[in-house]
């Protein structure tokens, strides 16, 4: 019932708006730039990957959807969640976004869930804040636990986080995120802290719930293969910028940006890709990246023009790519 009411309300205030729309987001901390001109869109019901090495700014980008910017950071550009402005939002509006519009699944459930409160308290906190009576909130929470595949959901409500395994606790966090009935699910490396076998289950669960509910999902990961397998579209980030955007399968089959290609070649594959090649050099943060194309000092295809300026985004095959010399042909 609640779901229907909310969806109905959404359409009345004029939104078939995208679940997430980040346009030209720039972020800087004092003189240090963190993100530049980041544009990411997640339609309702769509799964979008955000891929990059650590320090590329993917988590920063995802957190900006909740208005969770680093302390003292200055943001430019525009971030809207389900049509609601986030960067310019006041306290109440931001709280509304965080409570009802977008919810995040963090990397490590052990540290992202309060260890001294019961799982039931964690799940019902948001519901109670919206004015759901205690009893209804508890049965709703038990429902959610059942949906994420936790046995004996009633009993689980009374238990503490340390009594669950990592995988089970991640399911609890997913249940907590869904309790808000959000338009947008932000999954920040949700499987990185888990066993490989558990990873597959959690990813499957996220996919199923997201499809059932028509929620938009931004899936942040450093695992390009995983992203290609589950995402409708993928953004690749490098040094605080988006360097390539492509449909999941296309990115995998025909990476346009040399960095994407290098990432694919650097990861082991079950499908018998020839050899693993590490990317030379270390990943750069935006602040320490070279002028022009940030990847040029590590790029096998770099030429002099790459230093002239940040490459404009152009289309190449199915990709939108920020590279002067995209594609496969040898340099």
């Amino acid at each position: 019932m609640k779901v229907l009411e909310k969806r109905a309300k959404d359409t009345t205030d004029g939104t078939a708006a995208d679940a997430l729309d980040i346009r030209g987001l720039g972020l800087s901390l004092g003189p240090v730039p963190l993100l530049a001109d980041v544009t990411v869109r997640v339609a309702r019901g769509e799964t979008v990957g955000l891929v990059g090495e650590s320090g590329s700014g993917k988590s920063l980008t995802a957190r900006s959807a909740l208005g969770m910017l680093p302390r003292g950071a200055r943001a430019t550009g525009r971030v809207t969640v389900a049509g609601r402005d986030v960067l310019g939002a006041g306290r109440a509006a931001l709280r509304d976004v965080r409570r009802h519009r977008a919810a995040m699944v963090f990397q490590d459930p052990r540290s992202a869930i309060n260890p001294v409160r019961r799982v039931g308290d964690h799940l019902t906190e948001g519901l109670r804040a919206r004015g759901v009576p205690a009893k209804a909130a508890r049965s709703r929470a038990a429902d959610l636990l059942a949906q994420v595949g936790i046995r004996d959901p009633r009993g689980a409500l009374r238990r503490y986080p340390h009594e669950f395994s990592g995988g089970m606790l991640q399911r609890v966090m997913i249940a907590g995120a869904l309790a808000a009935e959000p338009d947008l699910l932000l999954a920040d490396e949700p499987t990185t802290a888990l066993d490989v076998t558990t990873q597959a289950e959690v990813v499957g669960l996220l996919r199923r719930l997201q499809a059932e509910r028509g929620t938009g999902m931004l899936f942040v990961t450093h695992d390009l293969d995983l992203a290609a397998a589950i995402c409708d579209r993928i953004y690749v980030m490098y040094a605080g910028r988006i360097v390539e955007e492509a449909p999941g399968a296309a990115l995998f089959a025909e990476p346009a940006h040399p960095y994407t290609r290098a990432l694919l070649e650097a990861s082991p594959s079950l499908h018998g890709r020839a050899e693993i090649r590490a990317i030379k050099g270390a990943p750069r943060a935006l602040a320490e990246a070279p002028s022009g194309c940030a990847f040029r000092d590590r790029c096998p295809r770099a030429v002099e023009e790459c230093a002239a300026g940040v490459p404009e985004t152009r289309s190449h095959g199915l990709s939108a790519v920020a590279c002067l010399r995209p594609g496969k042909e040898a340099a």
């Binding site: 709280r95 965080r98 009802h100 919810a103 490590d108 309060n114 906190e125 804040a129």
Partner: peptide, 20 residues
């Protein structure tokens, strides 16, 4: 981190300080 996560869920003010 769980305090930050609670903030991200829209828990704030006195409730955040008291419970988390």
């Amino acid at each position: 981190e769980h305090v930050e996560a609670a903030r991200g869920r829209g828990v704030g003010g006195a409730a955040l300080i008291a419970r988390h």
